[in-house]
Nucleic acid binder design. Structure first.
Length: 474
RNA sequence: GGCGAGUUGGCGGAGUGGUUACGCAGCGGAUUGCAAAUCCGUGUACAGGAGUUCGAUUCUCCUACUCGCCUCCA
């Protein structure tokens, strides 16, 4: 069996991964707060942990992995969005949830086994909070319930902070009802205009962190294998989750392995609305950037390093994927029900790279080698395994040019073939200036003509295909 | 101020105590009516300083710089 090694934030070391139960490997990844379209940075953890999910399923068996990723659909950002737009909270969260699923599917992410919504777990949260109060880890004050960080000795261990240091450097305004400035909210009161649920502390709503603790406990138990998310969640979100869960279930250790992906940057700078470099996954898709290209770029940097999204990388990724989908090179027929074929032919070196703390750039380099060496079965199976298209040229070509509908596609092909025929005739008459004129014209329209050894000619679309220019050549 | 990550050839980006990926670009060649595409060949880089070592890009320490978190954030 493949030995998987993962970098554990908790120990700051790369460790051999040993499941608690190899018949049910359990992973929880923090999902989005559903108030707006997923931006590009949101896609990184989704893709990273999608790869891990695929790896675990390959190693332990498809039916022996439970992957949970939540939707946080109760949050003050959602409330604010509803208030400013005049729409209902339910409309916003339902719509945003659906967008998220569509956008993540477009970048090749498989759906987790469970995608719980926080609002479906309010009673479990209330119950967990009651337990924390009973054990002396939390206290009610002025309609709030707060977690007492001093009641948990290991508070700060994950992110390497001490409570005293944090207080010294804190820039937060401290609510008067907090016993310790670092105490965080488990439950807060709601006024009449804010969503709320009845509770022992009055009508209110949960604080930010408790939903993950409650849902992880319900779906995975008190002790499970892997907990993941972006490294900006390490503090305070994950620290607080650990404190809540470990105090509510002192017999357990919560997650064995903590994994955090590094942040995404855009052209060397943090993505932010004020810098004007903020964009969503949907923005890219609508601009004609295929989801596979986004995925390829994401996989080409190791998940624990900052990733810089640049136009240059996007172009190079698209170029590589075009080459990998060149029908002249790949003769294996694509079959959507090819899971058996894929499973059998996934390359061992690709697996070894992934097993070594998800070395996706290494896996891509193996893909290059397989392609170059003509090991097409391994290549296709491995590329698909990583969620990249292979032997699927038509799909890729269509997805690159969303405006190009099927009838136009056929018309384009006919036009191009006519022009190539005319060029072949000119060539046979040794009228090379006419032949070159046609070839240059096609290239200008975004179609590259390539002569094969046998005297026939192939063609492919290049980046800036322009149907209008093609029409003008007729 | 506190905590953490990082600095690899023209660019991107892995990895390793000694044999120095991979991709893009470049260069040389084959091929071609000319191209393109393709194929073959070609690159000795690891921020600076000190230390450990037979030997360090890889380990330790120091310095510089970059970035993230500490407030909502993946």
């Amino acid at each position: 069996m493949t030995t998987i090694k993962l970098h554990n934030t908790k120990t700051r070391q790369r460790e051999v991964f040993t499941p608690i139960d190899d018949k049910n490997v359990r992973m929880y990844v923090c999902g989005p707060t559903v108030y707006d379209r997923a931006h590009l940075g949101n896609a990184r953890p989704v893709i990273v942990f999608d790869v891990l999910n695929r790896l675990l399923r390959h190693v332990y068996g498809n039916d022996h992995v439970t992957y949970v990723r939540n939707f946080t659909d109760v949050d003050d950002k959602i409330n604010a969005r509803a208030a400013e737009s005049g729409r209902s909270i339910g409309q916003i969260t339902a719509e945003t949830t659906q967008w998220f699923l569509e956008d993540m599917a477009a970048v090749g992410a498989l759906e987790p086994d469970h995608m719980p919504r926080a609002t479906a777990y309010i009673p479990q949260m209330v119950s967990m909070i009651e337990g924390l109060i009973a054990k002396g880890h939390a206290y009610a004050a002025e309609g709030h319930v707060l977690f007492a960080v001093e009641s948990y000795k290991k508070y700060g261990a994950l992110s390497g902070r001490s409570i005293d240091d944090m207080i010294a450097g804190a820039r937060v305004e401290v609510a008067p009802y907090k016993r310790n400035p670092m105490d965080f909210v488990l439950w807060k009161p709601s006024d009449a205009d804010t969503p709320g649920w009845d509770s022992p502390w009055g009508r209110g709503r949960p604080g930010w962190h408790i939903e993950c603790s409650a849902m992880a406990y319900e779906l995975l138990g008190a002790h499970f294998d892997i907990h993941g998310g972006g490294n900006d969640l390490m503090f305070p979100h994950h620290e607080n989750e650990i404190a809540q869960s470990c105090c509510a279930h002192p017999e357990s250790e919560f997650a064995n392995v903590w994994m955090h992906n590094e942040m995404l940057q855009v052209e060397g700078k943090k993505m932010s609305k004020s810098l004007g470099n903020f964009f969503t996954v949907r923005d890219l898709l609508d601009q004609g950037v295929p989801g596979e290209v986004i995925r390829f770029v994401m996989l080409s940097t190791h998940y624990r390093k900052p990733m810089d999204w640049t136009d240059k990388k996007r172009d190079e990724a698209e170029k590589t994927l075009r080459e990998w989908n060149n029908p002249d090179r790949i003769s294996i027929v694509s079959d959507t029900a090819a899971s058996e074929f894929d499973r059998k032919h996934i390359d061992n070196d690709v697996m070894d790279c992934l097993a070594e703390d998800l070395n996706t750039p290494g896996a891509i380099s193996v893909l290059h080698r397989l392609f170059k060496d003509g090991n097409m079965e391994q290549f296709v199976a491995s590329a698909r395994y990583l969620g990249l298209p292979a032997a699927d040229f038509e799909y890729f070509r269509k997805s690159s040019i969303p405006a190009m509908t099927e009838p136009i596609n056929v018309m384009v092909a006919n036009t191009v073939n006519d022009l190539i025929g005319a060029r072949a005739k000119a060539k046979s008459e040794r009228n090379f200036s006419e032949a070159d004129r046609i070839r240059d014209g096609l290239l200008g329209a975004g179609i590259r003509v390539t002569d094969r050894k046998d005297g026939t000619s192939g063609w492919e679309l290049v980046a800036d295909f322009d149907p209008a220019k093609l029409e003008a050549l007729k």
